[in-house]
Design a protein around this nucleic acid. Structure first.
Lengths: 349, 349
DNA sequence: TTGTACGCGTTATCAC
DNA sequence: GTGATAACGCGTACAA
């Protein structure tokens, strides 16, 4: 026997901070906490009468389950981690919006962490997510080696975008970058261009490689010899695009058209050309990739390959929700589509 | 007496998923869990010998404290909520990056939720954060009424950016939008412009109002009568800026210069002008506000008012860390600075 | 179908 | 200084 007064029937006083617990709901509804939990999670069948009583109590008390406690109890945290590279990038921004909107509808919250295009940062980011007990992880591109990624996320539902990977509880999908790049290059060829320069992205990424392959495909199909002097590698940023143009021009590589692997580099390239008194599209036709909002509002409006980044995000989230439900996701991304605007024109003799 | 075999000394087997708990660390170091906790949090003095032993065990086992459990135990979750409006906006993106970087150094993780410029969404966003037991909330602008915000976040450390608010555990700061707008307008006046149109942002926001005030200030100081026909209200987006130009032109409002309340609207306006065969800066001088990356790479490069959005984010995070530590934050934002590029020029004839 | 009892990993409150 | 012990709020075997 203890000497202190043992609380015979804990009173469950309303907490000062207004937080309502499941236990209070149970008491108000005249059922046990487990019954409330079962109703909440649909874990087991419950009589309609109690269901109603509990629902009423939940409404009346304004109860909201505590995700932290759920997480600890071994259940889910209703949060999914999202490994992005740079959260401030216009590209990722749109994807994150798609992810957020989609997850929200299912009651999940995204946890965004940045990999900064850096392998070690990315590993730490994922470890952070793991320690936060996320229910799943969405990885957008990234630099982490396949094996490292697989072993880190082993057992956890994972969606990888922009890379082909196989694994249990793992779903990956990509946009058809190669076809898109082919279409972009083909468009320039159709306009009569033969000297078509190319700004590649960071070739560590499949995306960048595939876009370069698409460019080469189109050249080959048109019987145009590839000229290494016309290809320059960069880093997917505006500054990088501008720099790439400088390098191209310093090589005295003559070209009448330029295909940049993404819109940001295209925008940078446009400024770079302007600095050398080269006009778009009068002197150089320019094509980008992604169709970010900035492409629509650049001067001149940029011809580019449309890939709905927002949709990629929402599809990734949908796939994740599928994995979480135990169903096998199947993402059907729309085919790449060339959007012709005002940065390209027929070659003037 | 129970009939089942009572585990006399729970064996603490290594868990299959490789997760190491504080309890295991304690056992390995030959101390009690409480002691480990104390060392981790610096809650109380511990002998150097045990400190060393525990540190060694932590290293050896690769222990990482579980933030979820910490959160439940009434401690902190080491997460701070961030209420943004649209996560995909280039403006917010840069701020979020600043917040993320700063928080990360202190071991905190940001939880981003979007308010979508919608009062009800914003309220729900904050409630989501509360239920996630965040240690504090950073609010970037937003539409929620002051009182609603105050009562929702009562007691929780809160940092509000872009609004002046008073409250316990509450810190707010703003950029000097008025001075910035004044400088922008003054620049146009200095260039000889007299008919200066203005695109306002959504006047629900202090930011937008203050920028308009700065515009009016400068006009008044120069003895230029304000012409309501030259002012049009919009929504801070590219599309809105483009639309605003149409409205301005339909009014037959003649102007030689245009000041848009933010860079995004300026970029949209630029395209709108282009569509009407008006050249920047030859026919119309254009000034934006924010100095986003897009301003540097627009065509022509945009004259704008520099406010380091990244810095605003990191300062907000620093202020939050201060509140969390119990110190009173004091944010000193740099003064607004006009960045003259190529979208403005002296008025011709 | 429903309730009891315990555990999740940590911190806080006591005693020693 | 240090170690038991009791929460924290919920999920879930297990028993009824």
């Amino acid at each position: 026997m203890k000497d202190k007064t043992p609380p015979a029937k804990k009173a469950l006083p309303t907490r000062p901070d207004g937080v309502v617990t499941l236990e209070q709901v149970a008491e108000a509804a005249g059922v046990s906490p487990s019954t409330v939990s079962r109703i909440l999670n649909g874990t087991a069948a419950v009589s309609q009468a109690k269901k109603d009583a509990v629902q009423a109590a939940i409404q009346a008390l304004g109860f909201r389950p505590n995700p932290v406690a759920r997480g600890l109890a071994g259940g889910r945290t209703l949060s999914v981690g999202v490994v992005t590279q740079i959260i401030s990038s216009p590209f990722y921004g749109e994807a994150l919006l798609g992810i957020e909107r989609e997850l929200e509808q299912a009651g999940y919250v995204p946890l965004f962490v940045s990999g900064n295009w850096h392998e070690e940062d990315e590993r730490k980011a994922i470890e952070t997510l793991l320690s936060r007990r996320v229910d799943g992880i969405i990885v957008l591109a990234g630099r982490l080696a396949d094996e490292a990624l697989l072993s880190l996320t082993a057992g956890l539902p994972t969606v990888v975008v922009g890379r082909q990977l196989e694994g249990p509880q793992l779903y990956s999908f990509s946009f058809d970058n190669r076809a898109g790049a082919r279409a972009a290059t083909q468009h320039l060829i159709d306009q009569g261009h033969r000297r078509i320069a190319f700004i590649a992205g960071d070739l560590i990424h499949d995306d960048a490689v595939e876009r370069q392959n698409g460019y080469l495909d189109a050249l080959a199909a048109a019987g145009i010899a590839m000229d290494a002097n016309l290809i320059v590698q960069s880093d997917f940023t505006e500054a990088g695009g501008m720099l790439a143009v400088s390098r191209l021009l310093e090589r005295d590589a003559h070209f009448t058209a330029l295909f940049a692997s993404n819109d940001q580099m295209a925008i940078g390239a446009c400024l770079g050309l302007h600095r050398r008194n080269l006009r778009v599209p009068d002197d150089v036709s320019l094509v980008g990739f992604d169709d970010l909002i900035m492409a629509r509002y650049s001067m001149p409006p940029l011809t580019t390959v449309r890939q709905s980044v927002y949709e990629i995000g929402s599809e990734a989230a949908t796939a994740m929700l599928g994995l979480l439900r135990g169903t096998t996701p199947k993402v059907e991304l729309p085919q790449p589509e060339l959007v012709v605007r005002e940065s390209t024109r027929r070659m003037q003799r």
